[in-house]
Design a protein around this nucleic acid. Structure first.
Ligand SMILES: [Mn+2]
Ligand SMILES: [Mn+2]
Ligand SMILES: [Zn+2]
Ligand SMILES: [Zn+2]
Lengths: 138, 138
DNA sequence: CAATAGATTAGAATTATTCTAAATAACTCA
DNA sequence: TGAGTTATTTAGAATAATTCTAATCTATTG
């Protein structure tokens, strides 16, 4: 069983048809070793740097997009500034706290959306995103 | 009744404590003369140019933000690239068609969202946004 | 009108992200 | 395992949306 001891990140990447390079394995570890998380490219890059991995920001962007294309991540658009990537690819929604740029999950099973009209002719629904925008209680 | 004949756009601006300059009145007309609409800064700028108004893109951005602060517009974040501004400030949701960058309204009264957990401690819900992402039927 | 506060704007700056093209590393299989 | 092929990484340039600066206008007010 070649390469099974560093976690199965290399395996996970191979399944996704991505060569398990040092950079991708390091990013996969940061993303998938623990609980589900939400990251921006810039923050993941900083985290990688902190954990001793030297890789370019371009590689972080490349990898995040490749992981997304492979279904390992999804993008969450809540913020006009930066794109957030989410390791939770199941159906769920988000709390978003603007001051603090903080995203947290709302389990999908709990939320029901009723009364949506059907998709316009020639289109179909790809996904329904709910974002609950929070402000601090003043 | 000074300045009532060009539509009440100047009046609308005065109520919002904004000087009814030529530029702002022109933008207000484009935005508020007809049915509700969704625009980006770039598109509104192009439209203004087409309709013979010469104004800078910076002024379009300034005005859109001032109108938003005044409650005449709201922002809709559906797209990592550009910010959309919405003349419909009532409670409602959106269909978003990515290929085509097209936003359309889903009346708010029709949609019910149930099962949302309550806001985390120290925060309160500012707004709940639902975006139904569409793709063309293949 | 004159004075003043506020608005507009050209162009530079900023930020997030993507692109380019050259160097490097992973994979294949003989 | 090594040569050859292909995929990946990366520095730095490029792009795109948006904001900022500071100089010039303009609406308002008395
Ligand atoms: Mn858009
Ligand atoms: Mn951007
Ligand atoms: Zn999530
Ligand atoms: Zn709308």
């Amino acid at each position: 069983m070649p390469g099974a001891q560093k976690g199965d990140f290399a395996a996970k990447l191979r399944v996704a048809q991505l060569r398990p390079t040092k950079q991708r394995v390091a990013l996969a570890r940061l993303l998938f070793a623990g609980a589900d998380r939400h990251v921006t490219a810039e923050r993941l890059h900083a985290e990688a740097a902190n954990s001793g991995v030297r890789l370019s920001l371009a590689t972080v962007y490349n990898s995040l997009h490749q992981f997304t294309a492979a279904g390992l991540l999804r993008q969450v658009i809540v913020d006009g500034e930066k794109t957030h990537f989410d390791t939770n690819t199941g159906e769920h929604h988000h709390f978003y706290f603007e001051g603090g740029d903080l995203l947290t999950d709302i389990p999908g099973g709990d939320v029901r959306i009723e009364g949506l009209p059907r998709a316009p002719a020639g289109t179909e629904i790809e996904r329904v995103d709910v974002v609950v925008r929070l402000k601090s209680r003043g």
